[in-house]
Computed example of a mutant assay.
Amino acid sequence: METKPKLYYFHGRGRMESIRWLLAAAGVEFEEEFLETREQYEKLQKDGRLLFDQVPLVEIDGMPLTQSRAILSYLAAKYNLYGKDLKERLRIDMYADGTLDLMLMIAQAPFKPPKEKEESYALVVKRAKTRYFPVFEKILKDHGEDFLVGNQLSWADIQLLEAILMVEELSAPVLSDFPLLQAFKTRISNIPTIKKFLQPGSQRKPPPDAHYVEVVRNVLNF
C-alpha cells in the first residue's frame, strides 16, 4: 500500500494551500503535521529535510520535496494534471503562474499593518477584475472548451478556481462581469473530488486570522 503524502506547514493556507488543492483534486489522501513552535522548525532544518531552510515540505515517493512551485509541478505530472505535451504544459505553467501572483498578494496581506492590509486587498480585487480575470474569460471564450488547456482537468483549472474563491472572499460580486468564469467556477466546483474538498470538515484551510499570523511570525522569527 502506497504511503500517504505528508505535508509539513502551518495550520493555515500560505504556500501549502495550492498543494492541498492539487492533491485533493487528484483524489489523494494526505497527512499533515502542523508547525506550531520554533523547535519543530529547527528540527526539520537540523534533520536536513529543508533544502533551503524553507517550508512547505512534502514527503512523497520517498523524497522530501521543498519549493512550492517544484512540488506543484511534480504533483501535476504525477497525477495526470499537466497536459498531454510540452505546449500544453507551457500554457498550464503560464496560467498557474498568473493566478499564483494574485494569490500571493492575498497571502502576504495579513502580515502587513491594518491600513496597508486593506489597501492590498483592494488592489487584489482591482487587479483581478482588470488584469487577471479578463484574460481567463477570453481564454475560455476563444477555445470554447470546459477547461483552460486541452479538454481535460489540469493544474491550471484547479488553481484558477482556488484563486477565484479567494478573491470572492474579499469581494463577493467580483465575477459579475465574467459569465464564462461564473460557469467555470460552478463546473469545476462540482467535480466530485473538488466538491468533497469544498465541504466543511475537509483539509481546506480558512482565511488567515491573527493567531495564524502570530504562529508564523514566532516559528520563522520575523
Rank of each mutant, 00 (worst) to 15 (best):
K46V: 10
P200E: 02
D146F: 11
K185A: 09
Q108L: 13
P207A: 09
K196P: 08
P206M: 04
G27N: 11
P110V: 04
F222R: 13
S68C: 14
A128E: 01
D85I: 05
A76E: 06
K117R: 14
A122T: 02
V135M: 09
A77H: 13
G83E: 09
T99W: 00
V167K: 04
I188K: 00
P200K: 06
A183C: 03
E39N: 05
K4G: 10
S73F: 07
I194S: 03
Y132D: 07
L170V: 13
L148H: 02
F10N: 06
R15M: 10
E2P: 15
K112G: 07
D157N: 02
P200V: 05
E137P: 01
N221V: 12
I194N: 08
R15G: 10
K46M: 10
E137A: 02
T37Q: 11
P5L: 08
W21K: 10
N80P: 07
V174C: 09
K205M: 07
S189R: 02
I158Y: 00
R131P: 06
V58M: 12
Q67L: 11
G12M: 01
D142Q: 02
F136S: 00
R91T: 03
E36W: 09
L180T: 02
L102W: 00
L7W: 11
G201T: 02
L100G: 09
L140C: 07
T130C: 12
I191E: 08
I191D: 06
I60R: 02
I194W: 08
E17G: 03
L35A: 05
N80K: 10
Q182S: 05
V174P: 01
A96D: 05
F184T: 01
H143D: 08
T193F: 10
I60K: 07
L161N: 10
L75H: 09
L35P: 02
F184W: 03
E33I: 14
I164Q: 07
R38K: 15
M16E: 08
P110F: 12
G144F: 00
K84C: 11
K6Y: 12
H143R: 05
Y132L: 15
R20D: 06
R131G: 14
K46Q: 14
K196F: 08
R217Q: 14
A109Y: 04
D142I: 00
M1L: 07
H211E: 15
S189G: 08
L44I: 07
G12F: 01
E32D: 08
N190M: 08
S189C: 09
Y74E: 13
A70Y: 11
E31G: 09
E169S: 13
S68Y: 11
L57P: 11
L44C: 10
G144Q: 00
K84R: 11
P56F: 05
N218M: 09
V219R: 04
D97T: 05
A26Q: 12
Q203C: 04
R91N: 11
L75G: 13
V216P: 03
